[in-house]
Amino acid sequence: MNHLSYLFAAYSIIFVAVFLYVILLWRRQVRLEAELLRLEDEIRELARKMAPPEDGGASAT
């Protein structure tokens, strides 16, 4: 390896590492956002089921 190769390797490694880290973060973020949306929907659905009927339960009698 001549000196230019060491220089090229050093700068390449820096940018490849940063690029891979950004890809990793982006994938984590996409997965988390999908999971968040799913959970928020689940909570809304549960809250709707648990809420008392709008007529205060009068129609049940």
Binding site: V22, L25, W26, R28, Q29, E33, L36
Partner: peptide
């Protein structure tokens, strides 16, 4: 900032769970 954003989302996820 990007990493903090994912960690905040993760914290929110645990809170929702």
């Amino acid at each position: 900032w990007l990493r903090l954003k994912t960690l905040r989302a993760k914290s929110r996820l645990f809170e929702l769970r």
